[in-house]
Design a protein around this nucleic acid. Structure first.
Lengths: 214, 214
DNA sequence: ATAGCAATAACCCAATTGAGGGTATTTTTG
DNA sequence: CAAAAATACCCTCAATTGGGTTATTGCTAT
């Protein structure tokens, strides 16, 4: 039999903590190597215990789950951090993902499913309820912006160069047109996007689809 | 028994298409209501058949899977589109997600798992292999940028207002400091981010973490 | 077909804003 | 205490913006 995967738990509600401990201990793949009611205790022991997976309640007193996540990810160790929550809190899910969480599981996830998700995580996947995954993708999805669709191809071309930091003059040289024409395009862009400066136009474009100019 | 969920398949390799058809037909929850070797045929029949889920090969001849996805999403109908692929092609995964795919499944997914994923999809989730989910999240994850970490709180505050399109003067008023001080902060920001204009600074910040200013 | 419209291109003037180079004081923090 | 951050001011020049005008091209809808 393979070595069991070491899991630590951080959860302030004793009932839930013990419930999860139970599930972990009973599974054939995992072993619980530490169970804490706060992030501070985990951080004190993490170097000794070396858990491969940490299940972290997102709403902890003292150091919050997300702060703990940040600290652990800064430590540069081989530890997956899976966030636990009772609520489907968009803001927290979002921040967890940004900060590098390796999973996001609802506490109400049934034991069998929980183990299954952790198993997927350990083998190159991510531990996430499909409902949460949907939320995440929707957050990241480019929101179609009618205004931006209205830009002509040439206007988009100009704006993309502006984003890269080129001045009017430089854009003009790149596109073989007069700087005054660049200005003409910009005026139209400002009107269409309802903004009044390059900065705002850039912010608008990058917010609506931050990846188009990667 | 509940009504079966209607599934259409678009896949040009007959063997794979028939394999998936089989899996769908044998499951108790789904029924196959159309199986096509190209996107054109699907689009011709979609209004008649009204599938609730479409399994779409990503690499189709003629109209590609992603183009078909775009067209279907524009139709404003209640149809989930799940992309199928043999390869773990980052670029295509990325574009599918951006365009609103409701899932992304590897063709090698075992039948039982496939049905399970589609079931999750139908009940508010998303059909995605955990390995793919990981890839997607990594793509969207903010790449930590040492330069941006170097900004002081005040500098970040100034930059966030600049992103919103405020001029130096307006930022100064908001923060109750002199416009010259705003300029001072901006000089330091430019030095730290190694840029030379507001436009570049905004682009840099938004590219590194496009969501921090939502 | 043709009148109208949007896109593209180019120019003018006036006023504001931004950037690059300094310098200096106070406060906060390691 | 020394370093960093935050504050504020100077000058100069370039860049940007907002208000106009004009002309050509090409599509589109009556």
């Amino acid at each position: 039999m393979l070595e069991k995967i070491k899991v630590s738990i951080v959860e302030d509600e004793p009932e839930i903590r013990e419930g999860i401990e139970d599930v972990i201990q009973k599974s054939q793949f995992f072993i619980c190597v530490g169970s804490y009611s706060n992030a501070e205790s985990l951080l004190d022991n993490i170097d000794k215990v070396e858990p491969e997976i940490i299940l972290m309640d997102i709403g902890l007193k003292g150091i919050s789950g997300i702060e703990a996540l940040k600290l652990i990810k800064k430590m540069n160790i081989q530890t997956a951090v899976v966030m636990l929550t009772v609520f489907e809190d968009d803001e927290k899910i979002f921040n967890s993902i940004i900060e590098g969480a390796d999973g996001y599981i609802l506490k109400k996830t049934p034991p069998q499913k929980l183990v299954e998700l952790l198993y997927e995580l350990h083998y190159g996947g991510i531990a996430i309820n499909p409902q949460i995954a949907r939320k995440v993708l929707e957050m990241f999805r480019a929101k179609p912006d009618k205004k931006i669709d209205d830009l002509s191809d040439r206007e988009r071309e100009v704006l993309n160069l502006i984003i890269k930091g080129y001045t009017h003059k430089q854009v003009a040289e790149k596109l073989f047109i007069s700087p005054e024409t660049v200005r003409g395009h910009l005026k139209n862009i400002y009107r269409k996007l309802q903004v009044h400066s390059k900065t705002e136009a850039v912010a608008k474009i990058l917010h609506s689809n931050p990846f188009q100019n990667k």
